[in-house]
Design a protein around this nucleic acid. Structure first.
Length: 899
RNA sequence: GGACGCGUAGCUCAGCGGGAGAGCAUUCGCUUCACACGCGAAGGGUCGCAGGUUCAAUCCCUGCCGCGUCCA
């Protein structure tokens, strides 16, 4: 006998170990394959609620396909997370009072990071086990593994050969804290309070011009100016200005184009140019141009051949040499801003200070203000690689689910910029490029090969120095679907499991990761890395706020698992994972699904108490009882619904179908209807129901297993199965199992019992009171049904008897039961007023239906144009309502006559 | 400014051309021999607003209002 409740904390680790030890997580050797690669979490990470959702869905699919007999592989692993990991270890060193990264030196520092990785890097991988993730751990990968690193070098070299990897001097997003370039995807635009400082730059060569102003009375007039006003939010950059731009159509400045200004402080002479970038409506309409420190200015500078003057060092301090005037050299950027403003005020060229809110780029990891910075970096020609990646989605080689996300993907892919892949970090794949003294670059997979190339190039041995930088972590992640399977080696895994079937991930990394995997996968394997990309929702708190540590609204999945069990959390994630909508997660919901699992547990307990043992070789198709035939059909409907839903990634539909079947169909009705039989004397019927019940319960456990693996596996074991549910086969769909006649009969029974219960409740009939039920106007079919199910009706309706008669007992309460009228003899509980109200309301309801339907049927257009079945359906509804009304009206008359 | 999405019962959401649904919450009644993490019953909605298409619109189209996210 089962305990009264399931104890997840005691059972989950045991079952997980059993699965893992059994080898069930590894794909079978033969058969159709189904593969998923995990979106590799950061090695620094720990499981958050988004991971819980994402990995639950992956596991649901993997388990489903495994049970369907496919060779299912879910390949796990982590990425090395360049900046994040380096940051963690640097912080640790600092906290322990050790020497910093630079004092330590590259080799020693990297060794420290590996040490950290060995100790703390496996956290999230352990946590995935708590969730029940059925990953094949024997294939676990890390982006810095030897094989994956070899793949990275190979890809780099090949791209270089293909002319798709090159070195270039461009503006990058520079993080002055980490002193590295970062991707624009790692830049967070934050709105901050700032100022526009309006500076007057004096015109060179004594030039003056009339500038339109308002006089004291507000009339238009002009004043003669020998300066031009520019506005800036970043005054310190003026040291690097190399031009002033005005709009070509701006009448005010028309004559100044081609003239020069003398830049204050430095005294440099810089040109005024006409460029559409200048917005006449904004500020003074003239903008200062600093090509080396602003992305827009960079473009303007290119168009007008303006000088690119860098003024900052890698820590965003002013340079310690020319062109920075001595007094500002080495100054921190924000201190420099203050100093420049003070100088402008003092010298009288600060014309105005305007408050403004504007967007300022911040590093998403460091949190500091990002500087556009002119550097030499390695770039991938993403525009070229994007072509095939776009085509693969256009022609359906890869489909997005939900489909809308294709738009996001296309939008980004079609406007893609060269991908800067070098990072000034130490933790990562070091760039396989070697420099000779003269700056000549040799790109090679190995140092030896680089030397060989150099020797061929120079005709003799020369000293080479490897590039100091490492590659962007996303560069190696982009290879994940095939590098994890052994590429570039021609492995069996690669042949069997690549391309993968489904990728499940969040929309926030479509750009970061999905797009790049598509590009690399197609370029290097010729195949799109996945057939389908399912974009899962974003988990928010119960108020719709994004969860974040700073808001303090995070829900820790591990705490939730401790409280409710992994199954409850998984079911919640699955049920709420509707397409195209964020998930607002609230605890009561998880609690509700925990209750659901308890319900199944207790239903199993009930079947055990009633000796519903599985019968070997039992074929449900041979069952004769209406109840058996009905539930077999219900099982079939559920099998079809869940299979279809999971095939389509409609996870919420699958969860809801499971919930409804197990609770509302199996527990609420089937088991209740089975009770009288199980307690009755008909041994044949009892035997059939016992075997049937055991079979239905098995089906329920099988169907629920992908979503709630722990409790179902435990029950599977407790109900005497010898095999493990995780590898048990999925039921085949069989439309022939639906028995329309049985459906109709059981639905009639359910309606009848529901009506009886409803009336008892409304009339406040105590639960212990038994009353007789009489049916009048019953057809032969109804009489037969009544006869067949008498025990059930008596038991569930708490009746003392049931008979068919055209004369009902005085003071009985009537209700409509199909073609018949039922009378519940509960005279002593009747409140005449209440009963009159009940009947009146019932008649009014029928009238409403009659009116509505009649209006349709009386409309010739409707009869002419609506489909036949809709017309027939409405005729039937009308007839039912009219019949019902007649019955209740008669009852009402009798009630009134009796008074 | 552009793109996408969302406004349906108190809350969270499903439905998406022909009878308004679920879970939670609420109310009432239940120690009914699996389950109080339960059982039975009930109340509660001009389906954001305004037009249009249609025999028929919560559902399709247009506009507006409100909210959210991403990208400039």
């Amino acid at each position: 006998m089962l305990e009264k409740n399931f104890d997840p904390a005691a059972v989950e680790p045991r079952l997980y170990k059993k699965w893992e030890d059994s080898g069930a997580f590894a794909p079978s050797d033969a058969g159709e394959t189904f593969s998923i690669v995990i979106p590799p979490p950061n090695v620094t990470g720990s499981l958050h609620i988004g991971h819980a959702l994402n990995n639950t869905l992956q596991d649901v699919l993997t388990r489903f396909e495994r049970m369907r007999g496919k060779a299912a592989l879910w390949l796990p692993g982590t990425d090395h997370a360049g900046i994040a990991t380096q940051m963690v270890v640097e912080r640790q060193l600092a906290a322990a009072g050790n020497e910093g990264r630079r004092e330590l030196g590259r080799d020693k520092f990297v060794a420290k990071v590996w040490e950290w990785k060995k100790e703390s890097g496996g956290t999230i991988v352990q946590q995935l086990r708590r969730l029940g993730a059925s990953c094949d751990w024997s294939r676990e990968r890390f982006t810095l593994d030897d094989g994956l690193s070899a793949a990275v070098r190979k890809v780099f070299v090949q791209l270089h050969k293909d002319g798709l990897m090159y070195r270039d001097k461009r503006l990058v997003n520079w993080d002055p804290q980490f002193q590295t370039a970062i991707s624009d995807l790692e830049v967070e635009q934050k709105e901050v309070d700032g100022h526009y400082w309006h500076f007057a730059y004096p015109l060179a060569d004594g030039v003056t011009y009339p500038f339109p102003i308002k006089d004291e009375e507000g009339n238009d007039t002009t004043e003669t100016r020998d300066y031009i006003v520019v506005a800036t939010t970043r005054p310190e950059t003026m040291l690097g200005d190399s031009g002033v731009a005005v709009h070509p159509d701006d009448e005010r400045y028309k004559d100044l184009v081609g003239k020069f200004v003398i830049l204050p402080i430095t005294g440099r002479r810089i040109p005024i140019v006409a460029d559409e970038y200048a917005d006449p409506a904004k500020g003074s309409g003239a903008v200062k141009i600093t090509p080396a420190h602003d992305f827009n200015d960079f473009m303007v500078g290119k168009r007008h051949d303006l000088e690119q003057i860098n003024i900052l060092d890698t820590q965003a301090n002013l340079l310690k040499f020319d062109p920075i005037p001595a007094e500002y050299q080495g100054m921190e950027r924000f201190a420099a801003r203050k100093a420049i403003i003070a100088r402008a005020e003092e010298e009288g060229w600060l014309k105005q200070i305007e408050k403004t809110k504007h967007m300022v780029p911040h590093g998403d990891r460091s949190g500091v203000v990002i500087e556009p910075f002119l550097t030499d970096q390695w770039y991938v020609n993403a525009g070229e690689l994007a072509k095939e990646a776009i085509a693969a989605v256009e022609d359906g080689r890869t489909v997005f689910e939900p489909k809308n996300w294709e738009k996001t993907y296309f939008e980004w892919m079609r406007n893609i910029e060269p991908w800067c892949v070098s990072r000034q970090l130490w933790w990562g794949h070091r760039i396989p490029a070697w420099y000779a003294e003269d700056g000549y670059i040799f790109v090679a997979e190995t140092e030896a090969d680089a030397h060989k190339q150099a020797e061929a190039h120079y005709g003799n041995k020369v000293a080479l120095k490897q590039d100091e930088d490492v590659l962007d972590t996303w560069f190696s992640s982009a290879l994940w679907p095939f590098s994890t399977m052994g590429w570039p080696e021609n492995t069996e895994d690669l042949a069997r499991f690549y391309p993968t079937h489904t990728l499940i991930t969040g929309f926030d990394i479509i750009f970061f990761w999905v797009a790049r995997m598509m590009m690399m996968g197609l370029h290097f394997t010729g195949k799109a890395p996945f057939k389908r990309v399912f974009i899962n929702a974003l988990v928010r708190d119960d108020k719709g706020q994004k969860m974040s540590k700073s808001k303090g609204n995070v829900m820790d999945p591990l705490v939730l698992i401790d409280e409710f069990g992994a199954d409850a959390l998984r079911f919640t994630m699955t049920a709420m994972s509707g397409q195209g909508r964020d998930i607002k997660l609230a605890k009561p919901r998880i609690e509700g699904y925990r209750n659901f699992s308890t319900k199944l547990w207790n239903a199993t307990r009930f079947t055990q108490m009633n000796e519903c043992a599985r019968v070997d070789g039992f074929d449900p198709a041979t069952a004769k009882l209406t109840l058996s035939r009905w539930i077999r059909g219900e099982v079939q409907k559920t099998v079809a619904a869940i299979t279809e839903a999971l095939e389509a990634c409609a996870f919420d539909d699958a969860a809801n179908a499971l919930y409804k079947f197990i609770w509302n169909v199996f527990c609420d009705w089937y088991l209740e209807l089975a009770k009288p039989i199980l307690n009755g004397d008909d041994q044949a019927a009892k035997a059939e129901i016992r075997a049937m019940t055991a079979w239905v319960l098995d089906q329920a456990m099988i169907l629920l297993h992908p979503v709630m693996p722990f409790i179902t596996e435990e029950l599977w074991d407790k109900t005497g199965h010898k095999d493990m549910l995780i590898t048990h086969s999925w039921p085949k769909s069989d439309a022939g199992a639906i028995d329309a006649e049985a459906d109709e009969e059981i639905n009639w029974l359910i309606d009848l019992i529901s009506e009886i219960r409803s009336i008892r409740s409304e009339m406040n009939v105590p639960g212990s009171a038994r009353a007789p039920l009489t049916l009048s106007g019953a057809s032969d079919v109804t009489r037969k049904r009544l006869d067949t199910h008498e025990d059930l009706i008596l038991f569930l309706g708490r009746l003392s008897g049931v008979d068919v008669s055209e004369t009902a007992a005085a003071g009985s309460v009537p209700f409509v039961a199909g073609e018949a009228t039922a009378h519940l003899a509960i005279a002593e509980f009747i409140d005449i007023k209440a009963e009159e109200a009940r009947l009146t309301k019932g008649i009014a309801d029928f009238d409403k239906t009659i009116d509505g339907v009649r209006r349709k049927l009386d409309n010739p257009e409707f009869v002419r144009k609506a489909p036949d079945e809709v017309i027939a359906e409405n005729r039937e509804r009308l007839e039912d309502a009219q019949n019902g009304k007649v019955k209740l009206s008669a009852a009402l008359e009798r009630l009134r006559a009796a008074q």
